[in-house]
Design a binder for these strands. Structure first.
Length: 292
DNA sequence: CCTCTATGGCGAA
DNA sequence: TCGCCCTAGAGGC
């Protein structure tokens, strides 16, 4: 599940359940024990996402930096924590105590369990700053500056499909949003970044902001327009891991929802690209193809 | 039971 | 470009 929308959603959930409260922090699995001890029984000040990185802030300017990688999961739930089934590397449990009483008022007991993450580490304010500084603009952040991404893309010979996934160019875009954004903008994934027009990029950025905000709201990645939904087209809804309705992601060999051509796939930098060869030609006349 | 795959990214070659 | 990190679900035998 972890593209940027997932991390922003988790940050919100952590704030809702733990901000302002003193929490117990542990590592049943054992690999984070020492660091957990440092922030154990201290207050959660906040939680924030930058791209796919999650930073949980504790008092004294200490942060737990989490990156879920491909298959990491952070479960945030109300109630008492179950016995730690599986390899729980980080567990946060609310104590019901707060430095400021109002912060704990009306809150339900809650816990958060982290499994399978690529990164779980304690970082300082300075390290946090360095991490944030090296990430490209995140479409889910109010302070994001798309001009920074455009400066990189417009100067690069690299395929736009690679640039969109480069976290130093854009923060938070993963393989699903990449594939779907390129489809929605009729753009071939291997087209060199420097051949894009500024207006094309800005339209993609605006679209991405909306798509990812929707993703934060629903917890899924849905990218098909109303006229291409299962209900509108009379097909069975998609049912797999991410659960959303998409045009091309993991649909290789199947007919394009817009033109019927077979969706293609190819590996680029160890990740699968998916695109429609008819809707997303490398070169397009000004008249263009029918808009998907 | 087994193998394969995945919405990611790092570091070694 | 490849192996690895290390989890869980799907599908094959």
């Amino acid at each position: 599940m972890p593209e940027g929308h997932t991390l922003h959603r988790l940050a919100g959930s952590l704030r809702d359940h733990f901000a302002g409260q003193v929490v117990e922090v542990s590592s049943p699995q054992g690999r984070f024990v020492e660091s957990a001890g440092v922030v154990d029984r201290t207050e959660v000040v906040g939680a924030d996402a930058f791209g796919k990185h999650l930073l949980i802030g504790f008092e004294a300017q200490r942060y737990v930096h989490v990156h879920l990688g491909l298959y990491g999961k952070l479960e945030v739930r109300e109630g008492a924590p179950p016995p730690p089934v599986g390899q729980v590397r980080l567990r946060i449990v609310s104590t019901g105590k707060a430095r400021v009483d109002a912060a704990a008022a009306g809150r339900h007991p809650a816990f958060a369990d982290l499994r399978g993450a690529t990164i779980c580490e304690l970082v300082s304010e300075e390290e946090r700053g360095a991490l944030v500084a090296r990430l490209g603009p995140d479409p889910l952040r109010d302070d994001a500056d798309p001009a920074r991404a455009w400066a990189r893309i417009s100067r690069s010979r690299a395929p736009v499909g690679a640039l969109l996934m480069d976290q130093e160019v854009l923060g938070g875009v993963g393989n699903v949003y990449r594939a779907e954004l390129l489809f929605r903008h009729r753009m071939h994934p291997l087209r060199p970044g420097r051949t894009l027009r500024r207006g094309q990029f800005l339209a993609m950025w605006t679209d991405l902001v909306q798509l990812m905000q929707d993703g934060v709201g629903t917890g899924r990645i849905d990218t098909v327009r109303v006229e291409h939904t299962p209900e509108a087209m009379g097909r069975a809804p998609r049912r797999d891991d991410h659960g959303g309705e998409v045009y091309v992601y993991r649909r290789h060999g199947q007919p394009c929802l817009v033109c019927g051509a077979k969706v293609r796939t190819e590996v680029l930098a160890a990740r699968n690209l998916f695109w429609c060869p008819r809707c997303q030609p490398m070169f397009r006349s000004r008249a263009g193809n029918r808009r998907p």
